[in-house]
Design a protein around this nucleic acid. Sequence first.
DNA 1: GTCTATATGTAGATAGAC
DNA 2: GTCTATCTACATATAGAC
Lengths: 214, 214
Amino acid sequence: MSEEKRPKDQLKAHIRAQNQALILETSERVFARQGLAKTTTQMIADEAGLPKANVHYYYRSKKDLLEAVLERILRLWLDSVSEFNLEEGPKRNLTRYISEKIDQSRINKNASKIFAMALIGEEHFVLDYLRNLFVTELKREKATIQAWVDKGLMAPVSTEHLFISIWAMTQTYADFDAQVKIMLQKDELEESDFDEAKQFITRMVLAGCGVVEH
Amino acid sequence: MSEEKRPKDQLKAHIRAQNQALILETSERVFARQGLAKTTTQMIADEAGLPKANVHYYYRSKKDLLEAVLERILRLWLDSVSEFNLEEGPKRNLTRYISEKIDQSRINKNASKIFAMALIGEEHFVLDYLRNLFVTELKREKATIQAWVDKGLMAPVSTEHLFISIWAMTQTYADFDAQVKIMLQKDELEESDFDEAKQFITRMVLAGCGVVEH
DNA sequence: GTCTATATGTAGATAGAC
DNA sequence: GTCTATCTACATATAGAC
């Protein structure tokens, strides 16, 4: 009975996917620029070139839309940072991790800002995500670091404070870029600024963790 | 001609000062809890036990009120961190600076959060303040650090990236406390958590800057 | 699936009696 | 200086024609 409907369904599914993608991309820009609460569905609709009712057709409420944006951000985000590789040792791993985090902030600044805004506003959606992340990811990294400590490759440090510090330092270049620009007295940050940040942060982390050269 | 009015004027001035203080303190709590945009003058009025029109009598607009809150925060803030003392050398100075910044975040968490929210939202008021701060304060600190480098007391580092990192690490314990709580798996942060943060951050900064022991 | 028109709620702000 | 009542604007969200 639904045989004849398939082509039409496929077309509809295509339109749906396209419009949803357009709305999500536009929302990410507008949310990052205006702030979560100041953003209106009207602004998003205007910037996407759609009537407002169309936005509400795909995402019933503004809250639904924000959560869809956050989900997309977080999914892409996890993929852009490598897991620790036990055999390579702390020096290479920490250096790569910091580099990837800085790249992530630079390349997808809007995503980073939205995440920070949701976190500072204590959005349940983001807190729940972090709790999950903690269980699945962080515990593994913690075990890896402990193994390096046991092998004498680095000093015993608090994994929690280490990650808190690395995240704070790397994300500040995206989330508080207005402050960073004032500090560096630049109108826009260049790739070289991010490279200097990488070097400085890596140097501090490796030295602070007493990572042995090899 | 105004001789007889003085007592009445003094009373009015007293009432004004008291009400303004009440409104500012309440606003700081509500802004930090709800976020800048989600906060309504009605919420502030309710929590202060005043009618909304009374709030608008003292602060004509919500924007005026937010700026008054920010001004109060920033004024108190500068006073709570010591300036660098050239003779003491980098180890003592950096250790004290980090300790004071962490204390500041812990003791006045709401102020720190409001500042972060205003910064991420790129409020002109805060950006202008930072530009002033840069000119007056940071240039002096930069000269001091350069003097230490010249004396061989520490490695040559970028003052800008150093301050960006210290600010990021110390403020993250206040601004993103929800994230920190999840990482440390605690319902509330205790003074001991902040002490551990101090130690970890200090260790990283001193080691990363190659500060010589003495 | 699209979009105009509209319902409903609530924000910021003020007039004007006390 | 206080506070009720109200104005205006605009937000979210939806109904219903196309």
